[in-house]
Every structure is written in C-alpha cells, then in structure tokens.
C-alpha cells in the first residue's frame, strides 16, 4: 500500500493545471514588484523572471512564458519585464535574474539554483506549494478560495522585505 501511495505521489508531479498556471502567470510578476528592494535586483530597469525548466518541462515552460508575455506585454508598471527560459542543466552561477520560477523539478540542480537565489535575495516561485520543502518561497493554490502561500520555514533565509500590505493578502504557512 505504501509503495502504491508513493507511486501516486511521484506520478502526480507531472500534471499541470492550466487555470493554476494562468493565475500564476497573472499574479507572480506583480508579487515581484512588492519586494521593497526590487530596484537593486534589476538591470537597466528590467525586472526579469527566469522560468527554470528540466528537459521534459520545456513545452510547459514555453506556454507559461507566453502567458506572462501576453498578460504584460513586457511591461510591469513603470519597468520592463523580461521572462527568460533557463534549462536547469545550463544554469550559470553568474545568473542575475530578479526572480525564479520552478515547475515540479527537483534534485541537486534545483537545490543549486535556489541556493543561488537565496544568497542574492531573489524570490523563488514554485508551481506547487508542496515544493516548499525545496526552499522555494512563494506559491499559489486554488481551493475554496485562491491562496498566495509564503514558505514560513525559509522566509528568514531569503530576508526579502515585502511591503506590509502583501502579508495581509498572503498566507504564511
């Protein structure tokens, strides 16, 4: 029975919910701007979101990037918005993205990217809040209502100061 449940849990890692993706594509870029120090994380007034994918996630990553670009037309408030696809195997330690997004990838490569982001106080979003165990910071969940979840266990490590009202609409878990 335990093996069966384990199989289910593993298998579930590969399903993507289009409504959840759309909601994330709409909300996550706005959350980036709620970082009080976001200016210091931009290059040439460009806010960048790196969608980090594994080989089998490329199609989904492209869809997600297209969703964001369609929503924002490369403009986020008074700044430019750039969405970049990064193959996790080719991730460079010199990457200077303003924020990162992960699907359900896991493993050593993801750990390396997240450590890089935490060190630079960059937000790491995850498709599924269950991946908070990998130290991603923010996710979204559709239940009877829609919830923005903040990962309580790593909020200190990231040391990102959000504007106070963000904490009123998000839920720290």
């Amino acid at each position: 029975m335990r093996m069966f449940l384990l199989l289910l849990i593993c298998a579930s890692l590969f399903a993507y919910d289009s409504l959840l993706l759309r909601a994330q594509a709409s909300m996550f870029p706005k959350i980036i701007l709620l970082d009080k120090n976001i200016k210091s994380k931009m290059i040439d007034d460009v806010v960048s979101l790196a969608v980090v994918y594994e080989k089998n996630e490329f199609k989904q990553a492209k869809i997600f990037k297209d969703m964001i670009e369609k929503n924002y037309n490369n403009k986020l408030g008074k700044y430019k918005l750039s969405v970049n696809l990064i193959n996790i195997k080719k991730f460079s330690d010199s990457d200077n993205s303003s924020s990162y997004y992960f699907f359900n990838t896991n493993g050593i490569d993801k750990k390396r990217v997240i450590e890089h982001a935490v060190k630079r106080k960059r937000i790491c979003f995850s498709y599924d809040y269950k991946n908070f165990k990998d130290n991603t910071l923010i996710s979204l969940f559709l239940k009877e209502k829609t919830y923005i979840y903040i990962n309580k266990s790593v909020i200190g490590e990231y040391n990102i100061k959000f504007i106070p009202t963000f904490y009123k609409i998000a839920k720290v878990i």
């Binding site: 409504l19 759309r22 909601a23 709409s26 909300m27 706005k30 959350i31 701007l33 709620l34 408030g77 008074k78 559709l142 009877e144 209502k145 829609t146 919830y147 923005i148 504007i163 009202t165 963000f166 609409i169």
Partner: peptide, 23 residues
Amino acid sequence: DTVEDDFIKDLQDDLETYSQIAT
C-alpha cells in the same frame, strides 16, 4: 506606495477572479 497599492489591489482582484473561475 500608490504603484504598490495598485499592484496589491490588482492582486486582490486576481485572487477573487481566479477563485470565481475555479468555482
């Protein structure tokens, strides 16, 4: 603050919109 407040309001609207679509 106004810009950030706008984003907060947008986020709240998004939360309501996607809750409604999900329902």
